[in-house]
Design a protein around this nucleic acid. Structure first.
Lengths: 336, 336
DNA sequence: TTGAAAGCGCTAACAG
DNA sequence: CTGTTAGCGCTTTCAA
């Protein structure tokens, strides 16, 4: 219970607290001899400086906060891996906040973060977030923010994403090339950057390739499996698309389940391609064509920039979007 | 940058710091009138108490640490969800540490945690951990520890697991009932509680049902996809089992990949069942029979007990193992 | 090269 | 009911 602190080290060594403190941080004006003695005892007693106390002086908690919509999703899981690897390498700690796509929760988290618990924030915004004032408040407090994946353009900071528009375009083009004539897009909330960009890519591809003459089947899904299943069932029953481009993995899974239930053959009756980082995409029946995002790299890059900002005080986060490309991997679900 | 603190509130209200502090915590000996005034201004200015400062007095950081082997795994993802839901409900923050199955990293994390950064620890130990002194050190410092999934019996605390032995037994029995005569077990490190219990269940089922007359094909996998692939390839080529019970999802995925490459038909040539929380188990080709663990519940229960310990000072974590049952879900991969 | 002392923001004992 | 004061563990002038 009684932990070793600087005071105890000082007592044991017959030194002042100040000297010990300076020795521990390898200060220039402490003799090597003293430093050695201090270091030795610190190691022996496994002294760990109290981060809360040091925060009070330095206003740095060596902690970053990560706010995510969800975690049961391979994309975010990989992103966290990237974030964690970068953070721990630099001696930072990572607090996780899950908004569960709920704006209120996101607001509560950001509000709390004004307390100084973390030095900076990585965020992928909830799909229900349309008002960004909670983040502007954080920004005003001087907390560095880096957006990843679901970004918001009107912040003067770095955003790290993949090429959503281009990928949406290519996914749709791929379906066209595989002979689809009635292509639907299962979109994620178009108030999200990724939702709107993926949908734009879809629409542009239809137009450029002169498919469906100005028509489009764009279904904006919500954040509920039951409702989304209804929406997609309706689509399959009434619009009867021969190609589906799903903006996120979850929609593709629903499609697979529905196709099985409705005895629709993938890819014969309907071809499916989806943004996805599922490990088992190639083992599905049939193997799912995917746009695979560089999730780990996106997380790592976002974390790396945030940490750079925290460590170097005269480094400013540039107001730009860093784009790391996704890869289209065609599999049987879109075979001709 | 300049954050609102108690001092500022006090100045603005012409009250003492102590009064404001007490008013904020709704203390009995402050008049309702004063409380209202304080609360109102606090809300207006969005006052957030500094957790580091309050730690220094109260020795409570309202933070728990979660140490996990990995995160790109549906089991742990769900467990985190359970932990997070419980923690945030009680106003606690969750720091994530990923050991990546590396004992050294685990030790480094636990060592750091002696600093007071977190009030308690939830841990699922790395497969390379055989020496538990780093955790005993933490325990000595008075940090409550709760084990989940990969537990260690010789700590005087709560462990939350699933019925690994029983599930291993049932999985093997299931293969036997489906007609398998040569059943292999792909075990995770048997120095882990889960590894050893699942393997014991396997062996006991073979014995009880008098299959393979005392023989067994128990392959202890390592923590590397390439090496594991070699091990399993060897198994399929030389031992030619007609049934495989995989201790973790990753091994089952390797089996699927190898069977495809080697043109082995699942379930005709070899039947496969695996511990797994994969969302897409039923969409695989063929659908994978699983033992599905109550991962969310395990995480939640573990967190709930830890938090109870942190909140109620005369509650002691009981020295027992809480078992939440898994469910065997037969699918085509073990069909007869 | 070392030490004394102030103070980060907050809480809690005690006094008024 | 409100305020004064000391101190949590640490860093950082400033003085010796």
């Amino acid at each position: 219970m009684e932990s070793v602190n600087i005071k105890k080290l000082a007592q044991l060594l017959n030194l002042s607290i100040a000297t010990v403190s300076k020795a521990l941080r390898d200060s220039y004006d402490i003799s090597q001899e003293t430093k050695d003695k201090v270091m030795k005892l610190a190691k022996e007693l496994n002294y760990q400086p109290n981060p809360h106390a040091s925060f009070l002086r330095k206003h740095s908690s060596k902690t970053i906060a990560v706010i995510l919509p969800e975690i049961a999703n391979n994309y975010f899981t990989l992103a966290i891996n990237g974030i964690e690897s970068e953070a721990h390498e630099k001696g930072y700690h990572v607090i996780i906040y899950l908004s569960h796509e709920d704006h209120e929760r996101e607001v509560a988290f950001t509000r709390h973060l004004q307390s100084g618990r973390a030095d900076g924030v990585l965020i992928s915004v909830a799909s229900t977030t349309t008002d960004y004032s909670h983040l502007h408040d954080l920004e005003k407090k001087g907390l560095p923010i880096v957006f990843f994946d679901r970004v918001c353009e009107d912040f003067n900071t770095v955003k790290v994403t993949t090429d959503d528009y281009q990928s949406g375009y290519l996914a749709t083009k791929h379906l066209i090339e595989q002979g689809c004539k009635r292509i639907a897009h299962l979109a994620i909330s178009t108030s999200l950057s990724i939702g709107s960009n993926r949908a734009k890519g879809y629409l542009q591809a239809l137009q450029n390739h002169d498919v469906m003459s100005g028509e489009s089947f764009l279904i904006e899904c919500v954040n509920d499996n039951v409702q989304d299943t209804e929406l997609i069932k309706d689509l399959l029953l009434h619009i009867k698309p021969d190609g589906i481009f799903a903006a996120v993995e979850r929609y593709a899974i629903i499609c697979y389940e529905l196709c099985e239930a409705m005895q629709l053959n993938i890819p014969k009756d309907v071809k499916i391609i989806s943004f996805s980082n599922m490990q088992t995409a190639s083992l599905l029946n049939p193997p799912l064509s995917t746009i695979t995002q560089p999730a780990f790299e996106i997380g790592r890059e976002a974390a790396s920039l945030l940490l750079k900002k925290l460590e170097k005080k005269n480094f400013q986060l540039p107001n730009e979007t860093i784009v790391i490309q996704s890869k289209l991997i065609p599999r049987k679900s879109t075979a001709n």
